[in-house]
C-alpha cells in the first residue's frame, strides 16, 4: 500500500485513527481522573470525526447522523456525567498511579503488535486500508480491557469500558461503513443506560464501603475466607 496514492481524506482517517490509539495509551497511563475523562472525551470526538470523514468519502448519509450521535454522547454527555459524578464523589484531586507504568505501557505496545498480527491474514490488496484500521480498532479494544485489568479505581474502569466501545465503533465505521442505524441507536442507548447505572452503583458502593477501589470488593469471592 502506498500512502501517497490514497486520497487526502483517507489519509486523514488514518491520522485520526492513530490519534485514537494514542489517546488509549494516554487513558491507560493517566494518573488524574479528571484528565483521563478529558482524554476520553477527546477520543469520542475523534471517533466522531472519523465517522464524519468516512461519511463524506463514501457519501453514506446515515453516518452523519451517527457521527453527531457519537459526538453528543461520547464527547459531551458521558464525559459531563462522569465529571459530575467525580465531583459528587469528591474525587477531583484523586490520583492513582499504576504499579509499574512502564511495564503496562510495554504490554499495551505488545497488544498493538498482537492485534496487527491477528489481522495480517487479510491480504487482499484493496482491503489493506480497512485491515490496518481494524488492527488499530482491535488494539483500542484490547487496551481498554487492559486498562480495566490494571486500574483499581472504579471510575477509571468505566473509562476503560467506554473506550473499548469506542474501538468497536471505530472498527464498525471503517470496515463496513457503519452498523445499521437501528443497531447503532440501540448500542448508544445501551451505553447511556450503562452509564446511568454505573453512576448509581458508584454512589451505592461509596456509601457502603467508603471507597471506589475495586480491590476492596475482593471479599465477594466464593470461599469467603477470613472476613
Amino acid at each position: 500500500m502506498n500512502l501517497s496514492l490514497l486520497p487526502l481524506l483517507q489519509q486523514l482517517v488514518l491520522v485520526l485513527a492513530a490519534i485514537v490509539l494514542f489517546l488509549s495509551f494516554v487513558l491507560l497511563a493517566q494518573n488524574r481522573l479528571i484528565s483521563a475523562i478529558h482524554a476520553f472525551a477527546w477520543q469520542g470526538a475523534l471517533v466522531a470525526a472519523v465517522t464524519t470523514v468516512v461519511a463524506a468519502t463514501g457519501h453514506i448519509h446515515h453516518l452523519y447522523f451517527s457521527a453527531a450521535l457519537t459526538l453528543a454522547l461520547k464527547a459531551l454527555l458521558i464525559p459531563w456525567m462522569l465529571h459530575r459524578l467525580v465531583r459528587r464523589l469528591e474525587l477531583e484531586r484523586h490520583t492513582e498511579s499504576l504499579q509499574s507504568p512502564t511495564l503496562v505501557t510495554m504490554a499495551a505496545v505488545a497488544l498493538v503488535i498482537f492485534s496487527y498480527w491477528l489481522v495480517l491474514p487479510m491480504i487482499q490488496e484493496e482491503l489493506t486500508f480497512t485491515r490496518n484500521i481494524v488492527a488499530i480498532s482491535l488494539a483500542v479494544v484490547l487496551i481498554g480491557l487492559l486498562m480495566m485489568v490494571f486500574r483499581t479505581q472504579a471510575v477509571a474502569q468505566v473509562l476503560g469500558f467506554m473506550s473499548m466501545e469506542n474501538g468497536l465503533f471505530l472498527a464498525a465505521v471503517s470496515a463496513t461503513g457503519g452498523m445499521p442505524l437501528v443497531v447503532e441507536l440501540g448500542v448508544a442507548f445501551d451505553v447511556l443506560v450503562a452509564m446511568v447505572l454505573f453512576g448509581v452503583f458508584f454512589l451505592q458502593i461509596r456509601e457502603s464501603i467508603d471507597s471506589l477501589d475495586v480491590d476492596r470488593l475482593n471479599r465477594l469471592r466464593e470461599t469467603g475466607g477470613d472476613q
Binding site: L14, V109, T128, F129, R131, N132, I133
Partner: peptide, 18 residues
C-alpha cells in the same frame, strides 16, 4: 519515547501494509 514508538508502529501498521 512512547510517541516515537507509536510513530514507528503506526508507520509499520498503517502506512506500509503488505
Amino acid at each position: 519515547l512512547l510517541l516515537s514508538l507509536l510513530g514507528l508502529l503506526s508507520h509499520v501498521i498503517l502506512e506500509v501494509g503488505a
